[in-house]
Amino acid sequence: MVLEELDYADPAIRAQQYFAVLDEQQSLCGFVQFFPIVGVTRLGLGLHPDRVGKGLGTAFVKLLVREAVARAPSNQIDLEVLIWNIRAQRTYMKAGFAITDTYERMTPNGLATFHCMVYS
Rank of each mutant, 00 (worst) to 15 (best):
M1P: 02
M1V: 07
M1W: 04
L3D: 13
L3Q: 09
L3G: 14
L3P: 07
E5M: 08
Y8F: 13
D10V: 01
A12G: 01
F19R: 07
V21M: 12
L22W: 00
L22R: 13
D23N: 14
Q26L: 11
Q26V: 00
S27C: 07
C29R: 15
F34Y: 03
F35N: 14
P36N: 11
G39W: 07
T41Y: 02
L43W: 02
L47G: 13
L47N: 12
P49A: 08
D50C: 00
R51M: 15
K54I: 00
K54F: 00
L56Y: 09
T58R: 03
A59V: 01
A59M: 03
F60W: 05
V61D: 04
V61A: 06
K62C: 07
L64G: 01
E67Q: 15
V69H: 12
V69C: 03
A70E: 10
A72G: 05
N75V: 08
Q76A: 13
I77D: 04
L79G: 06
E80T: 15
V81H: 03
I83R: 10
I86K: 08
R87A: 13
R87H: 10
A88T: 05
Q89R: 10
T91V: 15
K94Q: 13
K94I: 06
K94S: 13
G96F: 08
T100P: 08
T102W: 00
Y103D: 12
E104G: 13
P108I: 01
A112H: 14
A112T: 09
C116V: 14
M117A: 07
M117L: 14
V118I: 09
V118H: 05
S120M: 06
